[in-house]
């Protein structure tokens, strides 16, 4: 039971170069895998391929094997993909269905599409709202929320389908620090309470430092670095790969570079 990418090579329809050159990756349920990398390094493509949306929804050519719980993603019909992997993107506004008047109905959009019984839909909606922590937003108009709230609603809408894996493509990139904090906390809660496997692409390595178990760094469509989060984020090669390390790591590096000690107590305190 995992998402497994083996020797995956992928090219978009109408593109001249492959976006992913050769990627091996594994995401287990209950684990949080962070993905970092410079722009155009293939992070978004990785999300689409891991979730089965590429080539399923966006076309293109996939070589190698991308499997979700043992089944090749190409063999899963498009509408069933959402049941395995919930996908979240950067812009909260474009993830709204634009057909609902309240957050409650918006979160229920997915379960309603599946044709579930009304009682089941209600139960799933409340569960999703509770897990993400936004029950008080239920009566609000989804079009009138802040960016952070919008992303939380998107997260709840996707959770309502009870997927085993969650794939998030830079969910905080368009949010201010308050929104980022909201989403980060919600993700931590989701990871803890639902046992879902989470693939989190993030530019803000702080978020990765907080909740990721392992981190993978991409460069030009292939994996340049992989390993436990703490180790990867402290690796000095990050800057070359176009990734800014978390503030704590940078601070520690500067302190040591100035010849001072980095006392263990401080390390634990900032942690």
């Amino acid at each position: 039971m995992a998402i497994e990418l083996s020797a995956v090579r992928y090219r978009y329809a109408g593109a001249s170069r492959p976006a992913l050159q050769s990627v091996d990756l594994r995401l287990d349920p209950g684990r949080v895998l962070g993905v970092a990398g410079a722009n155009e390094s293939g992070k978004t493509t990785l999300c689409l391929v891991a979730g089965g949306f590429a080539p399923g929804v966006v076309g293109g050519r996939l070589e190698g094997s991308a499997r979700i719980d043992g089944a090749e993603t190409t063999s899963i019909p498009a509408h069933a993909l959402a049941l395995h992997c919930g996908l979240l993107f950067q812009n909260p506004a474009t993830q709204l269905s634009n057909t609902t008047a309240t957050v409650f109905e918006e979160v229920g959009f997915g379960p309603c599409n599946l044709g579930l019984a009304v009682s089941e839909v209600i139960e799933r909606v409340w569960w999703a709202l509770k897990t993400v922590g936004i029950e008080d937003l239920a009566p609000r108009d989804p079009a009138r929320l802040s960016g952070g709230q919008g992303q939380l609603v998107a997260l709840a809408s996707v959770l309502a389908l009870r997927p085993r894996y969650l794939i998030l493509d830079e969910p905080t990139s368009e949010l201010d620090p308050a929104g980022t904090a909201l989403v980060g906390e919600a993700l931590a809660r989701v990871a803890a309470e639902t046992g879902a496997g989470i693939l989190l692409v993030e530019h803000k390595t702080e978020v990765l430092a907080r909740i990721a178990d392992e981190v993978v760094v991409l460069r030009e469509g292939s994996v340049a670095l992989a390993g436990p989060a703490a180790a990867v984020l402290a690796d000095s090669i990050l800057a070359e790969l176009g990734v800014e390390p978390p503030a704590r790591v940078a601070l520690e590096r500067d302190v040591r570079a100035a010849g001072l000690d980095w006392p263990a107590a401080l390390a634990e305190g900032i942690g």
Partner: peptide, 25 residues
């Protein structure tokens, strides 16, 4: 330019699932 993102968001919510959708109201 929003069309691509909106398409994927809809598919991520099982929009193309077969059968009748549930009506809440």
């Amino acid at each position: 330019t929003e069309v691509e993102e909106r398409t994927m968001a809809l598919d991520a919510r099982a929009f193309s699932a077969p059968g009748r959708q549930t009506l809440l109201r």
